[in-house]
Simulated assay, not measured.
Amino acid sequence: ILLPHAAIPGTLLAILAFSMIGAGVGAAGTSLLAMLASGVVPERRAAAAAITWIMMVAGIVMAAATAGSLIDPFSEQRLATVSGGVALSAFLLAWAAISGIERRLVAPAHQNDDAPSASFGEALREIMADGTARRFTIFVFVSMLAYAMQDLILEPYAGLVFGMSPGESTKLAGLQHGGVMAGMIVAGIGGSAFAGRRPSDLRWWILAGCGGSALALAGLAFAATTGGDWPLRVNVGLLGFANGLFAVSAIGAMMGLAGAGQQSKEGVRMGVWGAAQAIAFGLGGLTGALGVDAARGALASDGAAFQLIFAGEAGLFVLAALLGVRVTMRSASPSMVAAPA
């Protein structure tokens, strides 16, 4: 509402608001992963994390579908009203969900009361000194960077290249997250995360998820200069499905490796990996958005700009697939494997 009448104050307020959203999401997500790793028995950690992600994605799908229906016919006042309603509903629901949760949390299932507590700095040095943990940190960063790059540009892509309205493009994002949820469920039913297997058992799921995401992004890159008849909704749904396969298998590997350290507790290691994930997610969204804007200015073509960014994102997923397969294969050594179910 403020931007059309006072561009500078409106822009500063928008920067502050988005920064607060990012900080809140990063802090809450990292703390939740640490709580899952330290408060759930080892054989159920991956399942708990996967179910948490599925519920999160289900909420995104519901919110996107509802908001997409409500903001058409589009107006700035209508957008502000719907956005405010979504934000207030999310806050109240989150408050109700976490109220008193630490009092109800059972004692950590895997702890040694006699072991000295390690500081975050000591835990970080231990992880960086551990080859497998260090490579997994890099894998988390690269894969989440690739995962997040289309987050802020998919809807503008649908509008600029395919002529979709804001409501239609919002529903398209809901379709993508519906695909993510379906991919997570398929991976879980397939036995990867929910069976409590070793990280090395998950490498084919990671390869399938990252490889499928790269192919789907290559399709979006190709469609950027063809538009029109391209089956965009199918392409976006397949991208979400592959993202879901990757996400749930990465969660399973993360939980399996969380207890591999000799001194660090699971929560601290998950905190480090959660921080890498949060930083990469924020940086990915920023890189994708700034990259498209810069490419549009340099190439003077919307389609070519999106094509460049989607192609780069596909390349990152290929790199993530190679890193993920390598790190999970190396984790097969006895010292790096979490206790099987």
Rank of each mutant, 00 (worst) to 15 (best):
E266D: 10
A129Y: 08
L286Y: 07
L299A: 03
T30A: 15
G163C: 05
L13C: 12
M255I: 08
G85Y: 06
S301I: 05
A224Q: 01
V82S: 05
G131Y: 10
A64I: 02
V186S: 01
D72Q: 09
N235L: 14
A275E: 05
S117V: 12
T226D: 11
V318G: 00
A280I: 11
A148R: 05
A214Q: 03
L323W: 01
A300R: 05
L245S: 02
M329C: 14
V25W: 08
G284Q: 01
A276C: 03
L299F: 06
G315F: 04
P116D: 07
D201P: 07
A58C: 11
A27R: 03
V40Q: 01
I54D: 09
C210A: 13
L232M: 03
R135F: 09
Q262D: 13
L322K: 03
A242K: 06
A48S: 14
G191T: 09
L88C: 06
R203P: 07
M35A: 14
I101C: 04
F136Y: 11
A17C: 13
A34I: 13
V180H: 05
P199M: 02
L16T: 13
A247I: 13
A278S: 09
W53S: 15
R203M: 10
M55C: 15
M329H: 13
F91L: 11
V41Q: 11
P116A: 08
S331I: 12
L12H: 05
A221R: 04
A280K: 00
G324D: 09
S89M: 10
W53K: 15
A23L: 13
L36P: 10
W95A: 13
A64L: 06
I98F: 12
M164C: 00
L13F: 09
G191C: 10
D151K: 00
E313H: 05
